[in-house]
Design a protein around this nucleic acid. Structure first.
Lengths: 311, 311
DNA sequence: CTGAAAGCGCTAACAA
DNA sequence: TTGTTAGCGCTTTCAG
């Protein structure tokens, strides 16, 4: 029962005198760290920094500190990182690493530590997550290509053990049929990872298979970049000979040669939404899980054009 | 006085039974957090993730957790973030945000918290830092351009309150004179920030000044990207009409249109070196400060060519 | 060499 | 309502 002003004055005076409440004592007593762990599969993939930013802002405003852990796309690192974060007693976790079947989920549940998946989700139900609508994104891409006149469209799929890999692949099949174009199995290649290297390999395989397609839809931007390399290697031009599309609209996608037609995901909003959801879970352990799906947006740029010879 | 094997067995058994030493109790007692703060000016600038990776690896192997704090290029956020990290009682700090005159340095000293600057350094002596040799990098660029036949070379300088901005600018002046080319003041533009937007503005100003140059050396890759935009706006082609160079060799610099000739900095090694230095400081408070300088490497790509009309 | 106990700085429960 | 105190789980000191 003191005035706001007095409280502020005291606080100020305390700060002036260099007093800082000891966080260890507080945490020892309360078992709360006010820290949240964020698991990232690959920090150097430009998709993640904007997500992290959204997370950090939201969580920071609520008084939480973010502890980032990067697993460099290695599954065993994920486990080590999770272990480390548990040791640090984080109050919650945001997982951007989720596989469709993910051991980490069970491990989080076992310790009853609140968590939210972001960008990728699990096959399991009852898990909170914030992702983008992959089916809608791919549908927009395929529709764009079909409108341009493409009929034989190849697909480079990401890892099928990731929800993004599977969701976009299925989305592609559905979207093709929606356009009345039966997807040809020999025009579909699968990748082990969302990397430029894998995209290169897959595109080269597709091209070696005799071609017969006028466009390649790639499961993400990095894969599309690999396509660029494969096309250049064979002296093919994009988009004159073959159109290419990506997914994610990663930073600088508009600066590539050619500027990449891709699907934009509201990455920072995605991060912020995941953080807000986690905040709710941390505040109320009984809060129901929730799955959010954000709407992506097609970004038409220079990597797509009408097929040259009636594709 | 127990065997290694027994120690391992006990440890294993402890882990098996779900025992985890409580880090708060440990920290409360010892005043050590085994956490290190890393201050980053802008996470979405692709230069930083590789540095962070090097830091995280090295520090992680030594048992430290990295707490990342991103200030989005806002000076006030830096202070807030530092305050937050101090509150968290980090054992050390790696600053990638350093200005030539940096208030944070005094604040770290005041609390006697070990710190190391990375990528940028301070004008102040007696501060540990790991940076790249900017003079050497710019010299390589200018020499490359001069060899191609360029004589009128413009420069887009980064912020002069950052060691990288100043160092590369001075390096440019020296390198030009070294080639027997007097740098023309009206061919030099200064930017307030290392951003695409500022690079665009500066390039436009330079071009509006009547041109009369055949190449632009930019203080970093983002600035160079801005040049691309400005050239495209005026219908000028790179490198046919004007050559452009960047600095940092950020990820995907080789994928731009055109692929960017730039200077590669060993970013992860830089991060790792800074982490090792910090480890030394944390271990031995009396350890002398040390400044390391890493050697950069010129990456010649498609954005530079012979001048079209005798430059 | 081994085992008991004090105390780090805070919060929460309790007594006054 | 206000002031006192126990105790969070470790490390470290000190007595046995």
């Amino acid at each position: 029962m003191v005035t706001e002003e007095m409280a502020a004055r005291v606080e100020h005076a305390a700060a002036e005198m260099g007093y800082r409440p000891n966080p260890f004592a507080y945490s020892l007593k309360t078992n709360r760290s006010f820290a949240v762990g964020v698991l990232i599969p690959d920090l150097t993939n430009p998709v993640f920094p904007p997500i992290i930013r959204g997370v950090e802002r939201t969580l920071g405003d609520a008084g939480y500190t973010v502890i980032l852990a990067n697993s460099d796309n290695q599954g065993d690192r994920e486990l080590v990182n999770l272990e480390e974060l548990k040791t640090r007693q984080v109050d919650g976790l945001i997982l951007a690493t989720a596989h469709r079947e993910d051991a980490l989920i069970a491990l989080c549940r076992a310790e009853e530590i609140p968590f939210v998946l972001v960008n990728r989700r699990s096959d399991e139900d009852g898990v909170s997550s914030v992702v983008a609508d992959d089916a809608a994104g791919v549908r927009a891409v395929v529709s764009h290509l079909a409108t341009l006149g493409h009929r034989r469209i190849a697909y480079i799929a990401g890892p099928q053990n990731l929800s993004t890999g599977l969701g976009r692949y299925r989305g592609f099949l559905d979207a093709m049929r929606g356009e009345g174009l039966e997807p040809a199995p020999d025009l579909i290649a699968f990748c082990d990872a969302f990397t430029e290297k894998e995209g290169f390999r897959a595109a080269r395989d597709l091209l070696a298979g005799g071609g017969g397609f006028s466009a390649i839809v790639a499961g993400n931007d990095l894969l599309a970049l690999g396509c660029y390399d494969a096309l250049a290697d064979l002296g093919l031009r994009c988009p004159e000979d073959i159109s290419v599309t990506g997914y994610n609209d990663m930073p600088f996608a508009d600066k590539f040669a050619p500027p990449l037609t891709t699907v934009r995901i509201p990455l920072d909003r995605m991060g912020a939404a995941a953080a807000k959801l986690l905040l709710r879970h941390m505040q109320d352990a009984g809060a129901g899980t929730q799955s959010m799906m954000l709407t992506p947006e097609l970004m038409v740029r220079g990597s797509t054009a009408r097929p040259s010879s009636g594709g």
